[in-house]
Design a protein around this nucleic acid. Structure first.
Length: 688
DNA sequence: GTAGGGTTAG
């Protein structure tokens, strides 16, 4: 009877029906069979309404309906979706108690549940604290492997849940291993499976691999979904490739897919984050003529953009427009505005907005409280901040790493290191793991007070906790090591500033001033403190140097690390490559590209573009051809290659001949280019 | 008769 229910509104109607059954005396005219209950339970699971599920289940038992495998599976699925594996396992045992056997569906749900075990978002009120399990993916994996042992055949869904789990964590090799596993078990991956992998690459900011995978999906005549395209657009936007993101819209339209709210929210959000508020607003206003109604995410992106730009008035009027537009603001919307007020030192307004939010029926979240606490602390009102913390805890909200870090930052910036350390202890007792920002704040504070040993001691704690130091962490440590030297060299105090009477160097300037010897001093001090510099240590330094064009020092470090038997990773190679292309050192760039390919790394297309243009500029045509040949074997999406190298590169730089030459290499190799790109190329070549 | 994906702090 609930088969036609699909929306949250339907759920309400269905629940009302069950309520009537529950209110009846058993002789009621409202009766439901097991199938009806099951359908309702699945529907509730779809919307993650586990409390309602539990109630429906109890009504079912009260009415002496015997649950079947579908009932139990629905319960397992619901709890797994919200990451509550403990509760889900309770229903698995009920399956066994009932003399039934868990099936493929049960296992697929459990795999999903284990992958989500830690996903209980701090944005929600969490009353039951789930145990944190580091090896949640291993547990999921054991379940997948255990299926065969139990005589069950994993389905596409079982594999996809596992692949999604790995992709979310950026473990692409493991994800591809699962792909291999399913293929060897004769299950052919569908578009959804590839969609998961594309998501993984996008999440890792490896958009080129994501695009190459898209090509593979299309070659296999599978249809990528709107979600997949949206993910690609998001990935391209985040990588700063705005033009490419627009091209992806073209590609999706060709497949008959229509960009939706999500698509535009990505664009609008990206524009806002880049500070292009006007452009974002123009796109927002153009939605109507596209037949798209702005949703709360779109409004929030724009509101957030205005708040970050300090234009609270505009943000506020958007909130009003939102309400007129029948678009309901959510906690994210209010959080953006509250944050905006705090940033402008208007904590009072921020606090009253929180009250308003509650009145509007929107629940504050951990984030709301944290933003307010941070605002109060930055305002120097420690008392109020503590009171608010008490209020949040007593209302059942669990402070997270951001909340604790706000306090630690406040104590660090006032030089109260003992209090800051007390908060580290408190955090540990609550089972909250500090992140690199937390540790780096402490390191900076110790360094500012001239306590080198303590600063490096915190680094050791970081290493021991398995927390990866950021480039900020290393920059603060180095600026301290070289402080006296740098101060002398910069007697005009350029790039130096004062905090609590201690002078130190701005992070951005560390890379500009850093010499090779400083790095060596860092490594030696690290070793003395029991932290051996690893590939990431070198990576942070090399990438930092490359960003400011310090190729010579970066290369020395690169050689230094290799001499010590540490192999550079793809990011290190790419930053070096980008740096020397930018400096016009094309011979060196060619050497790097060759070395990368030899080690199985993928050189960025942007660097190839610069390199090929550079080689043509130097008249080194044969070298350019050879480099392009190798590029075509890298497995890139050929259309993307053509677009980047020809249209964005050679044609724009006026190397039409080079463009024709390289295009013929593509044709010789049988590389397919999209007809639209091809006609643009021909047009471009004619124009020269 | 069941299911699997995606935004938004310091």
């Amino acid at each position: 009877m609930f088969r036609s229910c699909h929306s949250v509104e339907d759920v309400g109607v269905a629940l009302d029906f069950v309520r009537k059954i529950n209110d009846g005396d058993g002789e009621s005219k409202f009766k439901l069979r097991v199938k009806g209950y099951n359908t309702l339970l699945m529907l509730l699971a779809k919307f993650c309404l586990v409390d309602e599920m539990k109630w429906v289940y109890s009504v079912m038992l009260k009415n002496t309906i015997v649950p079947d495998i579908y009932t139990f599976n629905a319960m397992v699925n619901g709890y797994c979706k919200v990451g509550n594996v403990l509760e889900a396992e309770l229903y698995v045992s009920k399956i066994v108690d009932a003399g039934l056997r868990p099936n493929t569906f049960t296992f697929s749900s459990l795999i999903l549940g284990h992958c989500r075990k830690r996903d209980l978002d701090s944005a929600y009120r969490v009353f039951t604290v789930m145990p944190i399990e580091e090896n949640k993916l291993d547990d999921a994996r054991r379940l997948l492997d255990g299926m065969l042992e139990n005589g069950l055949v994993p389905s596409v869904v079982s594999y996809s849940a596992m692949i999604n789990g790995y992709c979310k964590e950026g473990l692409m090799e493991a994800a591809f291993e699962i792909l291999g596993l399913m293929e060897s078990n004769n299950i052919s991956p569908n578009a959804r499976i590839y969609g998961e992998l594309i998501y993984g690459f996008c999440k890792k900011k490896d958009v080129h691999r994501a695009m190459a995978l898209l090509n593979k999906v299309l070659e296999r005549k599978l249809s990528p979904s709107l979600i997949t395209y949206n993910l690609l657009i998001h990935g391209q936007c985040r990588a700063g490739h705005f033009d490419t993101a627009y091209r992806v819209i073209g590609l999706m339209k060709e497949c008959g897919l229509v960009p939706n709210q999500w698509t535009y929210s990505v664009f609008i959000d990206t524009l806002c984050k880049r500070g292009s508020l006007e452009e974002a607003h123009i796109m927002f206003e153009s939605l109507k003529e596209k037949g798209i109604k702005a949703n709360e995410v779109i409004y929030t992106a724009l509101i957030d953009g205005y708040c970050k730009a300090g234009k609270i008035e505009n943000a506020h009027s958007l909130l009003e427009r939102m309400l007129i537009d029948d678009c309901f603001p959510n906690s994210y919307t209010y959080n953006s505005l509250i944050h905006g007020f705090c940033k402008e030192k208007k904590v009072k307004e921020a606090l009253s907005l929180e009250e308003k939010m509650v009145k509007m029926g929107v629940h504050p979240t951990v984030r709301t409280y944290t933003i307010l606490i941070e605002g109060l602390l930055k305002d120097g009102d420690f008392d109020h901040a503590h009171r608010l913390l008490d209020r949040m805890v007593s209302s059942g909200y669990k402070p997270d790493v951001f909340t604790y870090t706000a306090f630690i930052q406040a104590y660090c910036s006032t030089g109260k290191l003992n209090e800051a350390e007390d908060w580290m202890v408190k955090m540990d007792e609550e089972g909250i793991v500090p992140d690199s920002v937390t540790y780096t704040l402490l390191i900076r504070a110790y360094a500012n007070l001239g306590l080198v040993y303590s600063a490096f001691d915190v680094l050791k704690r970081m290493f021991d906790a398995g927390c990866e130091p950021s480039h900020h962490t290393y920059a603060f440590l180095m600026s301290h090591l070289s402080k006296k030297k740098w101060m002398k060299e910069n007697s005009d105090v350029m790039g130096l500033y004062l905090v609590s009477n201690v002078t130190f160097v701005e992070v951005a300037d560390v890379w500009k001033m850093m010499e090779f010897d400083t790095a060596v001093e860092l490594f030696e001090t690290m070793l003395k403190h029991g932290c051996a510099p690893n590939v990431n240590t070198f990576g942070k330094l090399i990438i930092g140097l490359c960003k400011v064009g310090r190729f010579a020092v970066a290369q020395r470090l690169f050689d230094y690390m290799r001499e010590r038997g540490i192999s550079p990773n793809e990011d290190i190679y790419n930053s070096l490559l980008k740096c020397c292309c930018g400096l016009g050192m094309y011979k060196e760039a060619v050497r790097l590209v060759d070395a990368m390919i030899e080690h199985g790394h993928l050189p960025h297309l942007e660097s190839y573009k610069l390199l090929l243009c550079g080689l043509y500029d130097e008249g080194n045509i044969e070298k350019a051809k050879a480099v392009f040949h190798n590029l075509l074997d890298c497995g890139y999406n050929n259309d993307e290659v053509a677009w980047n190298i020809f249209i964005e590169g050679l044609l724009k730089k006026g190397f039409g001949d080079g463009c024709s030459e390289l295009l013929s290499i593509m044709e010789e190799k049988g590389c397919q280019v999209h007809p639209q790109t091809y006609s643009m190329l021909v047009e471009g070549l004619d124009g020269i």
